[in-house]
Structure formats: structure tokens, C-alpha cells
Write a protein that binds this DNA or RNA. Structure first.
Lengths: 234, 234
DNA sequence: AAAATACACTGTGTATACACAACACATTTT
DNA sequence: AAAATGTGTTGTGTATACACAGTGTATTTT
């Protein structure tokens, strides 16, 4: 296996691991360990790190090891401020510009998403959902929108892994509604209905926000302080 | 001079040269020549290249030398589609979040811009204008908006250098109107008037578009700015 | 005992050397 | 003569070695 492919494999693997929070937000990366694991020297590995830093996956700082990009309450706030607008614009443009093969790819991604929902596989669900929205980004095909959009997708995936573990009926219902919205998005894009696509984007992110509100501001537990058992994912 | 500073100098110099089109869009860069000029080995120089690639200044391709990012009619079209929306959002958030020192910095940048206009210095004018808008980006302070915004700023600067050489009275008038708009933008931000800031953003970019109507004239995205303020998480 | 300092260690930043791929030109072949 | 192929050159990609900064710990000093 040529070094070039090992480098590409490293890039893809780190992306996947970060998107699925297998590598958690804020986690440190061991440079030499990764070198050993992928059979690469430090130079190409560090280049991959720099790429991922530019894309918003990693956070590189002087004289310190690379960290997985943080996902704080501040970034969450930024997320829900920017997402409706960017996604609205992307879906609007997607409806305007989508090609037939792109629409086919979008339907495939949605198939995978549905399958992951049925199997209750949160990792596959997240990755399929990510692919779905990535394709809408390709459809929109705007140099200036894409960088922000892709950053949103990273944290959208990580938020999904963090907050969307359907432990209640309410949450499961939300997920199937998200899936239904995907179907409507596909239909709007296929019909070239820009206004409808933009509206669906807003609906989609309002649903996400509602889901997170359930987690961030849960109904107060009716239990004395000390006897707190760990109930929700970190 | 430590190597670290030489590296930072290289980064800053390349940014400046690209923004002012001293390095023209599509131009090839000579790696070893740059190494010699800044007294650096290839490794840190290549790291700078990768950073600039991630930021949208350069275009790195496999087994080929780095090129200055292209500025084609396609990217121009994308620019005028995305700019009104992103700038509108940024100025809206700037009006919401700006701190006193940031406002002071903004006024300074505008001073420089006016000075460059008086002196008829297109390079300084472009750099001051770029700084002006960069500061509004800092004010907006949103992780997800900034990447797209900064890419817009790169090409905004390069478009300015390409199309805004005031050879007619009309163009000179446009420039002084742009300057007047900057003043109004400062006022709106200082007053925390979000709606006004958003409106001024639209006016500002309509002015730019008018200037290069001869080359491209797409319709701007019509995303309602209002959907933005309403959707802030609790 | 607490604080400050020296020192070793871990790990990042840079330089250099080598490997290899792409391109250009010249030479050969049909 | 045109096409194809071989070869030389240029320049990118990777590996390794070295330099140095940051950090933690142990020792010394007050």
C-alpha cells in the first residue's frame, strides 16, 4: 500500500472518528502513536493535522499537541444562530442546481439513514446523515458557502452523537420526523422548489434545536443531590 | 530573528500579496525561491502553504506546485450570491456583540481607508477596507460564519483591486459612497441597531455589484434576515 | 515545611537527505 | 515526417535527525 493511500486513509479515519465522537471534543492526539498506527513518518501526519485544522476538525496550537475541536455551549449557541441561515441558503441553491446523479446519491444516503434508524445504530445513523447533508452541499456548489456549511456539518454530527440517543419515545419520534423531513427535502430538490427547500431547512433545524433543548434544559430531577446516577451521555 | 517569526512573516506577506493581487489569481508559487527569500527550509514553508490552502488563499494540488486561488467568473457569481447574506448576518451580529475596543479599532481602519482614498492608493485602500471588514467579522464572533466570511473577504479585496480602479468620475463617486456607508455601518454598530446594520450590508454589496455589473449579474439570495434573530436558543 | 530552582524528559518545530512522480526534450522507429 | 518512446531534469512527497521549548519532578534553600 503506497504512502499516499495511507495518508488518505489517515485523513478519512480521523474525520470519521471525530464526527462520531469516537475521538471526543477536546481530546488530545498522540502524534507518534498515529505515525506508528498508519506507517507514516511525522511529516505527512502533521500535514494531515494541518488540513484537519483548516477544516475545523482539529485545533492546532503552538508547541502543543493537536486537540479535537471543542464543542462547548458557546459553539452550540453559534451553531443554532448560523445553521438556519446557511442550511436555508444551501438547500435553496441545491434545489436550484442539483443534477440527476446527485439526487440519486442523496436518495442512497437517505436509504442508509433509514437503515441505521431501523437498526438503532447511532454511529451509522450519524455518518449517513452527514453524507446526506454533504451531498446537499455539493448540490449547492458555492465556494463561499461551503466552508461554513462543512463546519456546521462537523458539529451537527457531533451534536447528533451527543444528544440524539433515543432513550425516550419523544426522542425516537423526533428521529423519525427528521427522516420524514429528509424525504421532503429530496422531493423539494427534485422539484426544483427553492422556497420549499428553504422552508424545510428551517423546520429541520428547529427540530434539532428542540431536541437539544430537551437535553440542555431537562426537567429538573426530583432527587436529592447526592444520589445522582449517571443517566445521560456526556 | 527566530524561525518562528520568519514563518509568521511569510504567512502575513503571502496573504498581503494575494489580497492586493501582487500575486495574481492562478499564479504559480516557487517553493524553493520562497524558502531562500525567507530563510526557511521547505518543511515550514509547506506548512504555511497548507494553512493558506485551508483559508482559501492558495490552491494545493497533488504533485503540483501551489497556485494562488483562481478568481473566475464562476467564483464571482458565487461571490455575489453569498455575500449579501453572509455580510448581512455578520453585520447584524456585529451590532449585537461589538465591544468598545473593537469599535475603536473599526474607526481606525476607516480612517486608514479614507486616507488611502485621498491619496488614491489602491493597495492601501484595499488593505484598509479588508481590515475594516475583518474587524466586523471579529465583532460577529461566530465560529461557523467566519470561515465563509473570510473567504469572501479575500475575493472582495481581489475584486476591488481588479475592478475598482477609479478611472471615471462614476467610480470615484462609488468609492466615496462606499466610504460613507462605512461610516453609517460604524454608527449602526455603535448604536447596536441590528436591523440597520443588516440593511447597510445589503446596500454596501449592491453598490459593489453595481460596479461590476458589466461582468456578472446574478440575483442575490433572498434569505429573510429576520429568520435569524428569531431563532436564538434559549 | 514551603517555596524556589535546577534538571531531566517528553514532545513539538525545523532542517536536510533521499525517493519518486511528472514534464520536456531528444532520439529512435515506423 | 510523424508518432512513440526513452532519458534527463525539475520539483513534489516522505523519512530521519537534530534543536529547542514546555512540563513535571526532585532537590536545595530559606
Amino acid at each position: 500500500m503506497p504512502a499516499k493511500d495511507r495518508k488518505a486513509a489517515l485523513l478519512a479515519d480521523l474525520k470519521r472518528a471525530i464526527l462520531t465522537t469516537e475521538l471526543r471534543p477536546g481530546e488530545d492526539l498522540d502524534e507518534v502513536a498515529i505515525c506508528a498506527r498508519f506507517g507514516l513518518s511525522r511529516t505527512p501526519v502533521r500535514e494531515v493535522f494541518r488540513d484537519l485544522d483548516g477544516l475545523g476538525f482539529l485545533d492546532l496550537r503552538e508547541n502543543r499537541g493537536p486537540r479535537v475541536a471543542e464543542l462547548s455551549h458557546t459553539t452550540l449557541r453559534d451553531f443554532f444562530l448560523a445553521a438556519p441561515m446557511i442550511y436555508g441558503a444551501v438547500l435553496r441553491l441545491a434545489a436550484r442546481n442539483a443534477t440527476t446523479p446527485q439526487i440519486a446519491a442523496l436518495k442512497l444516503a437517505q436509504e442508509d439513514f433509514r437503515a441505521a434508524l431501523r437498526e438503532g445504530n447511532p454511529v451509522e445513523r450519524t455518518l449517513a446523515n452527514n453524507r446526506f447533508h454533504e451531498i446537499t452541499g455539493e448540490m449547492a456548489c458555492n465556494t463561499y458557502l461551503l466552508p461554513s456549511f462543512q463546519r456546521l456539518l462537523i458539529d451537527h454530527a457531533r451534536i447528533g452523537m451527543t444528544f440524539f440517543r433515543p432513550q425516550t419515545n419523544d426522542m425516537a419520534a423526533n428521529l423519525s420526523e427528521a427522516s420524514a423531513q429528509h424525504d421532503e427535502i429530496i422531493a423539494a430538490i427534485e422539484a426544483g422548489d427553492e422556497a420549499r427547500a428553504a422552508q424545510l431547512a428551517e423546520d429541520h433545524w428547529n427540530l434539532s434545536r428542540h431536541q437539544i433543548e430537551l437535553f440542555v434544559m431537562p426537567t429538573a430531577l426530583d432527587v436529592p443531590m447526592g444520589s445522582f446516577s449517571r443517566s445521560s451521555p456526556a
